[in-house]
Amino acid sequence: MAKRLYWSLLIPILLFGACSKPEMPQFVGIGNFNIESLGGNQSVVSADVTYYNQNKFDLKLRKADLDIYLADKYVGKTVLDTLIEIPKLDTFNVPVKITVDVKSLVSNAISALLFNQVKIKIQGTAKVGRSGFMMNLPVLYEGNQKLNF
Rank of each mutant, 00 (worst) to 15 (best):
L38V: 15
A2E: 15
S8L: 14
G39Q: 10
V102W: 11
R4L: 13
I30T: 07
V45M: 12
T50G: 01
K73R: 11
M1A: 07
I98Y: 05
G31P: 04
K63W: 03
Y6C: 13
A2Y: 14
T82P: 00
G31N: 08
P87L: 01
A2F: 11
T99P: 03
I35C: 12
S104G: 15
Q54C: 01
P87C: 02
L5H: 07
S107G: 02
M24Y: 01
A109Y: 12
N116L: 14
F149N: 12
F33Q: 11
D58M: 04
V100E: 08
L80D: 01
L15H: 06
D67M: 08
S107H: 07
N53I: 01
N41D: 12
K77Y: 12
L61G: 09
I110P: 01
V75L: 13
V102F: 13
G76H: 09
E85M: 10
R62L: 04
D90A: 10
E85Y: 06
G31F: 08
T125R: 00
I98D: 06
R62H: 09
Y52H: 13
M24C: 00
L147K: 03
V139S: 09
T82F: 08
N136L: 04
V100H: 05
L105E: 12
A2D: 11
D67C: 06
S8T: 09
A47E: 09
W7Y: 13
Q123C: 06
R130N: 07
L113Q: 10
V44P: 06
L105R: 08
S111F: 15
P22F: 05
F57E: 09
T91R: 06
P12C: 04
K88F: 01
V102H: 12
I13M: 14
G31M: 02
G17R: 10
T125Y: 03
Q54K: 12
I35H: 10
L137Y: 10
P95A: 05
P95R: 06
A71V: 10
L61E: 05
Q42H: 15
L10V: 12
D48P: 00
S8H: 12
M134Y: 15
Q145P: 06
L83W: 04
P12L: 02
K56Q: 04
D90H: 03
S131R: 10
N32M: 13
G129P: 02
Y74V: 09
D67H: 03
L147V: 15
I120L: 15
D90P: 00
K73I: 07
F16M: 11
D67G: 03
Y6N: 08
E23A: 09
F92L: 01
V102K: 15
W7E: 05
L61Q: 06
R62P: 00
Q54S: 07
K88G: 02
K73L: 06
I122M: 07
N32Y: 13
L9T: 14
V118A: 11
R130F: 10
L10H: 12
K63Y: 10
G76T: 11
K56F: 12
V128C: 02
A109T: 14
L137T: 03
P138C: 02
K119I: 01
S107R: 05
E85S: 13
D90M: 04
W7S: 04
